[in-house]
Structures are given as structure tokens and as C-alpha cells.
Amino acid sequence: MNGTDTMEAAEHRDGLLAKIAELRHVREFNVLLALLLVGFLISLATPYFLTTNNLMGVFRAFSLTAIMSIGMVMVIITGGIDLSVGSAMGLASLVTALAFEAGFPTGAAIGAGLATGLAFGLTNGLLITAIGLPPFIATLGTLSIGRGLMYMITHGVPVTPDTPEVFSVLGQGYIGPVPVPVVIMLALMTFFAIIMLRTRFGRHVYATGGNEQAARLSGVKVGRVKLTVYVLSSTIASLAGVIGFSRYLSAEPASGFGSELDVIAAAAIGGASLAGGIGSVTGAVIGAALVGVIANGVVLLNINTYAQQAITGGVILIAVSLDVLRNRLSGGGN
């Protein structure tokens, strides 16, 4: 039984070096390396990149995408997809604005925005679990409904209510040098990373995406798990909407449109597999950061801003290709 011997040796090899060596196998580690590398290269080209001012601006710029990617990656890990996050975000900012317009106090207005996301998520989740629609179709439908509602409500005109001073803190404030949206992003990332890695719910999310059938037969309530991640995704997106509204104090009829693709890109760059079972919350946030830093680099280096989208697309392809190749080389069994 030399199997058990080597096993025990492995269990007890908890040294620091071994831990560092293990890091190489953690998916996020590679994205983080890429992020640092790109950051380093840009800082060589322009010293302005590494100033606190610029960095905080970059962080704030990608924070909303990053926040939404936290919900998205959980959906993706279950093997699903949520195309409706942009609409949930936009609709939440609109509802918040309308609530202020109707004279709601700050707390209630925020609550109304978040409730919009919750309702959105429940709709997605029930379409997928109770009716059995494929997630792509269900969320494509609600995406479209969300957009339509926004135009119907606004008639194409932005909503700009008077808001109390305190509300602007959410999108415009700072804690020390750090913008509030960035603080919220980091807090959410930490919270959900712990949920995903340390709790039973997190384990069930991974099991559902890894093999739904096996998970169900092991007693995992797969339907409930799915419903929960869609509700989380939409609610988190609506929080991003509320923060976005607080930043500009204007709810645009087209706000959030198209952002689902950035959010999915962040999750994929961060190592999530659209086939399910694989991915991480921190990876998704780092993925959003990578895209954000590149966007900033494009501006700082005076590269044609139209090229930015093309560059982002290239980054997605390179990051995911490297991931796929690395897995193939490390021989995923036979």
C-alpha cells in the first residue's frame, strides 16, 4: 500500500515552499501574473500609470464590471449564463432614480433598486428551473424585456431627480484614497470568495456545474442552487446599477446596455469555464482588472481608442487559449 504512505507524506507537507509551489496550480495566479506583467509594461512606457490618482481612477472605472462579474461567475460555474445583467443594472438605476423622483428617502430608493434586481433574478431563475428554459434563452428574453421597459418608461429621456448629498457617497465618495465603489467591490469579492470556497452552498454550486446529474443524485437540491445564483447575479448587478446612478446622478435609458459581454469576458479571462464547474470569484475580478488596465494603457499610450475593443478581444482569446493549452499540457488524464 505505498499509495497511503505517499498520501500521508503529501498531507503533512504543509511547508511554505510547498504552498508557494502549489500556487502555480491555482488558476487565478496566472491571470494575476498577466495583470502584473501588463501593468509593469505600461509603467515602463509612461510613469503616470503608477500614480495613485491614475490607479484609483482605473480601479473605479472597472469596479462596476468587476462587481457584476462576481455574480456572473457563480452563474457560469453552475454551467449557466446570465445575459440579462446589463438590463438588470440599467433597470435598477432607473427604478432608483424614479424612486427619488417620487420622493422616497435614500434607503428606500436604494431598496427599490435592489428589489428590481431581485425580481429580475427570480424571473430568470424560475424560467430556468421551473419551466426548464436554457439559461441562454431565458436571460436573452429578460435582457430584451428589460431594455424595452427602460425605453417605455423613459421615452428615451434620462431621469435626473434631486438626490440627497449622502446618496452620492456611494458612487463618488472616497475612503482615504480609495473610491467607495472599489471598496464595495473588494468587500463583495472577499465575501463571495469565502462563500464559494468555504461553505456548503459554494461546494454545491461547483458540484452542480461539474456534473448536475451526480450532484442531484447525491442529494444536492440543484434547482434551489441555480435559482439562488441567478437571484444573486441580478441583485449584484442591480447594486452596480445603484452605484452607477449615484456616480452620475442621471439614469440613462441605455445605461448598462452591452455590459453583459464585458462581464462574461471578465469571468472567462479569470479562468471560468463556460462548460461549468470551473471558475472563481477572485479570478473574475482580476479578469475585469486586466481589461480595465489595458483600457487605461490604451488611453495613456495614445493608442487609437477605437483599437481598445479589438485589443480587449485579443486579450480574451490569448488568456483563454493559454488556459486551455496549459490544461492540455498538464495532461488532464486520458
Binding site: R198, A207, N211, A215
Partner: peptide, 28 residues
């Protein structure tokens, strides 16, 4: 197809049926 989550490790597959046994407030 039905028994195992192939991408998960031995421990995670093992405990999937009775994870509750190791949980306090949902934390494993």
C-alpha cells in the same frame, strides 16, 4: 455520468452526500 463529479477531487466527491456533517452555519 451519475456517480462522480469528475472535475472535483476525492474529498469533495466523498463529502457531497453528507457535507452537512462537517458544517457549522453552512461553513465547511
Amino acid at each position: 455520468g451519475q456517480g462522480l463529479v469528475l472535475g472535483m477531487n476525492v474529498r469533495e466527491n466523498f463529502s457531497l452526500t453528507h457535507l452537512k456533517d462537517y458544517c457549522s452555519f453552512d461553513f465547511v
